[in-house]
Design a protein around this nucleic acid. Sequence first.
DNA 1: ACCTGTCAAGTCTGG
DNA 2: CCAGACTTGACAGGT
Length: 336
Amino acid sequence: MIVRFGYVAMSVHLDNASPSKTMTMTSFSKLADREAGLRRLERIAEENLHNTLRLLKHNRYMGIQVYRMTSKIIPLVTHEELQDWDPYPALAKAFAEVGAFVREHNMRVSFHPDHFTVLSTPREEVFRNSVKDLRNHVRMLEAMGLDESALNNIHVGGSYGDKVKSGKRFIEQFRSIEQRITERITLENDDKTFTAAETLSIAEEVGVPMVLDIHHHEVNPGNELLKDLWPRILQTWDRFPWNVKHANTSHKLPPKLHVSSPKSVTDPRGHADLIEIEQLLRFLVDIASVTPAIDVMIEAKSKDEALMKLMDDFRAIEASGGPIRVIDGGSLEVLS
DNA sequence: ACCTGTCAAGTCTGG
DNA sequence: CCAGACTTGACAGGT
């Protein structure tokens, strides 16, 4: 099984490379010249795209092929008061440049819209805004020229006192959204409400791939065992008809795993600086024989530093005769 | 240079 | 019905 690792949004190794610089609505409103303000927002977005590209180049240098981009690339883009503003023409070149680099180096990039995107909501306005936010994420991926293997990962949402009813509402509302958006969605189990089994059933029902978060599963496990769910989770990725280049061979889009470690005993849901390797290693070894390839998103406070430390730990396991063969700075093979 | 409150957005709990 | 917690990087405004 080939495993590629990725991290989220920013690097602790690159200085002045924030891909999520912003401007608050409060300060935008204070500007006398609205048009000049919009140009300034576009400049910030351009800078964020430039830093995204810098991060991708850093990743390439490190051997890291998987990366989650920040949702905050274009400040205020979905804000109610700026709906007459279309920043995309001005950003076309910057977006295209990022996308070209991703394609050229066979990278896998994704977005994870914030927790304000909730498709299970009973509030019509919240649902509308959620679709608007998703549409913007799709538009960014399209502006990058990335095909439908570049995905937006979301959670099912709140339970509103009746989880079964909310799950049904998610499915119903999901089906009312245009295909251009839904074909780019993946669903992830969360740490409070929808367990892996519940998320999986909904993902199967609407036909989207499921992203498994093993830390969320640990703090919100439900009754199912992961090893029982895994074959079904794997199947949700079967619908991808296209191939992606992957470690010099061609595969379907590999399934995705999210990994983080509990911050502390008192805050088990919080994310620690680094990754404890034990649980992850056990899981990878468990699934290796039935899983040709998987991409693992590291969600640790120390970002790419946590990824590198984890690779060091894998090298130590390889050196002591464990079933690991490290390929480069961001990928390895689990022998089965 | 550093500190503190605030930010576009949602949900849940407790009062 | 409303305030605060949750959680996060970065702005904004202060010292």
